[in-house]
């Protein structure tokens, strides 16, 4: 079963194609053009390179956040529309799951940390267990000081990954037993691999059921002078 993965919850954009034999083609743009411009051309590119017709895709997987709202929505809107038009099911995976994936064999507590701007970060915690990975703390948003205090209280060896961890490296470096390491961004390759594991278990959802993980309510502070225009 061929899986198309689309990932755009952070500054990076990724599109990958793969399945039973792993990732067969992938594009990763760590920082470049704006997401909306690059995703569809990236889908065309991976299909061409892998000599795959888009109609052969059987599942569309997407990073559902948390992350930068506009960026993640672009990826989710693209993925949902593709799934509807191709009439295939979807698999949604959080950006934090994706970021933790490369460190899944670590015996430390793995803490993916995504920059949420405004001095905050999104994070979750995972632990290696026999046969896989267990989430020990659900995705949340807060200040990096909150995260540091939590890690300190746990007192376990931990590994922080992601652009949020890098941005606040000094704060996290003060935490005992805590190391900050790569990768910076979730990858579309990880998305395809994780989605494949779920596809094998037939854990599909319909495109209507894909729900973004925002973790923050909209900032609805407006006044007369900053009103947006109605075109």
């Amino acid at each position: 079963m061929l899986i198309l993965g689309i990932e755009s919850a952070t500054e990076s954009v990724g599109v990958a194609l793969g399945g039973h034999d792993g990732v067969i083609a992938a594009v990763e743009i760590a920082r470049g053009r704006r997401h909306a411009e690059s995703i569809v051309p990236a889908v065309q590119f991976v299909c061409r390179q892998a000599d795959v017709d888009l109609a052969e895709v059987g599942v569309v997987a997407v990073d559902i956040g948390p992350g930068l709202f506009t960026g993640m929505r672009v990826g989710i809107a693209t993925a949902k529309a593709l799934a509807m038009a191709l009439r295939v099911p979807m698999i949604g995976i959080t950006s934090l799951d994706l970021l933790a994936f490369p460190a899944r064999h670590s015996d430390r507590v793995v803490v993916p940390v995504i920059d949420a701007r405004k001095g905050e970060v999104f994070w979750a915690m995972y632990r290696h267990v026999p046969g896989g990975v267990q989430q020990v703390m659900a995705p949340t948003v807060g200040s990096v000081e909150d995260l540091a205090a939590d890690l300190m209280a746990r007192g376990q060896e931990s590994l922080c990954l992601g652009d949020g961890a890098e941005r606040h490296r000094e704060v996290l470096a003060d935490v005992h037993h805590c190391e900050v390491a790569g990768p910076r961004h979730p990858s579309a390759g990880a998305l395809v691999e994780l989605a494949h594991a779920r596809a094998v278990r037939e854990e599909f959802v319909d495109h209507h059921e894909i729900a973004p993980v925002y973790l923050r309510v909209p900032d609805a502070q407006i006044n007369w002078s900053t009103r947006q225009v109605r075109p």
Partner: peptide
């Protein structure tokens, strides 16, 4: 951007 992304995806598919 929501509309443009989805519309381009529909055209592609």
């Amino acid at each position: 951007l929501v509309g443009v992304s989805a519309a381009k995806a529909l055209a592609l598919a």
